[in-house]
């Protein structure tokens, strides 16, 4: 039999190729371009190789920002995931209460980032902010502009307030998809509430939780507007996270080469952590399924 080779079908992927090129490859390559050169003006540039990358990796300020960033992301995950599951568990299941609860829970998610920052900026002010003023009246010298602990606590509180809803909503939908018969069967078995949670609800939530944790990790790792508006990265650099360091470098100081190198490192960190997390969870599930 003669096989006819006709590769005209390759033309069909051309639109997709163009789309991906314009949306991802070309912008990314621009950054790569800057990261290996020192550009002075349109006609003057020097090839620098890996110099910018080495400089960035050895910069103590950036190293501190990376650590700060991990501390922040892990802290908010540790709070938001259990809290979100808890909220989903106590949310009403039917009737108007369910709708009301859903709207109430969704509300923080609808507020733009910089608005959240502004809201909390006012909320925490010592003179006119409800929280700042109350804490001071209670005798605690609360001040986010001079006390790093206060600043950190406030940013974490703000993020928990803004984003726990996402986890709660994901878990709520996961819980709703468990057939009633499971709960009935558990009641007939005389299983405790804890057993129902541990052996029915939690296993059924694994998938949505993986998505929730991944989203929240990526999101929080890129956090910018909220702390920028609330604390401006201070006091000192105690709340300066990665994206703010980057912005300062790229926009404020016009250090395009180093910031391009840094952007790529930043991107690779997120990619790496996400991949490791995802693979770990998937392997865990596979092991479980083997009955190990």
């Amino acid at each position: 039999m003669n096989k006819v080779y006709n590769n005209r079908a390759w033309w069909l992927i051309l639109p997709m190729l163009l789309l991906v090129a314009f949306s991802a490859v070309i912008p990314l390559m621009t950054v790569v371009n800057y990261s290996v050169q020192d550009v002075f003006d349109a006609n003057t540039r020097f090839f620098t190789g890996t110099e910018w990358f080495k400089e960035m990796l050895n910069d103590p300020a950036l190293q501190a920002a990376v650590l700060r960033q991990f501390a922040f992301s892990l802290t908010i995950l540790a709070i938001e995931v259990p809290l979100g599951i808890g909220i989903a568990l106590i949310m009403p299941k039917k009737g108007w209460q369910a709708s009301a609860a859903l709207i109430l829970v969704t509300m923080p998610l609808l507020i733009p980032w910089n608005v959240v920052g502004s809201i909390w900026q006012i909320f925490t002010r010592g003179d006119i902010g409800l929280m700042g003023w109350s804490l001071r009246e209670l005798g605690y010298g609360y001040n986010i502009t001079s006390n790093p602990v206060d600043a950190w606590a406030t940013i974490i509180l703000m993020d928990v307030w803004h984003w726990t809803s996402l986890i709660a909503l994901l878990c709520y939908s996961g819980l709703r998809s468990i057939p009633d018969a499971y709960y009935q069967a558990a009641r007939i078995d005389r299983a405790s509430k804890w057993a129902v949670f541990r052996y029915i609800q939690l296993p059924k939530l694994t998938n949505v939780l993986v998505i929730g944790v991944l989203l929240r990790f990526m999101h929080s790792f890129m956090i910018y507007a909220e702390p920028f508006v609330l604390t401006g990265g201070g006091p000192g650099s105690s709340t300066t996270f990665l994206s703010q360091s980057l912005t300062t470098m790229a926009i404020g100081q016009q250090d395009l080469g180093p910031s391009a190198a840094f952007s790529l490192i930043y991107f690779l960190i997120i990619l790496l952590v996400t991949w490791v997390f995802y693979t770990a969870i998937m392997n865990m599930q596979k092991d479980n399924n083997k009955g190990a």
């Binding site: 018969a181 009935q184 069967a185 405790s192 057993a195 939690l202 296993p203 059924k204």
Partner: peptide, 27 residues
């Protein structure tokens, strides 16, 4: 009492052994 449903209802994360043993463990 005990009940068997139209859908296949078992504890998803437990083995068959632990599933069958679950009412006895609780008792």
């Amino acid at each position: 009492v005990s009940m068997v449903y139209q859908q296949f209802i078992n504890y998803p994360s437990l083995t068959v052994y632990d599933n069958i043993a679950s009412p006895l463990k609780l008792a």
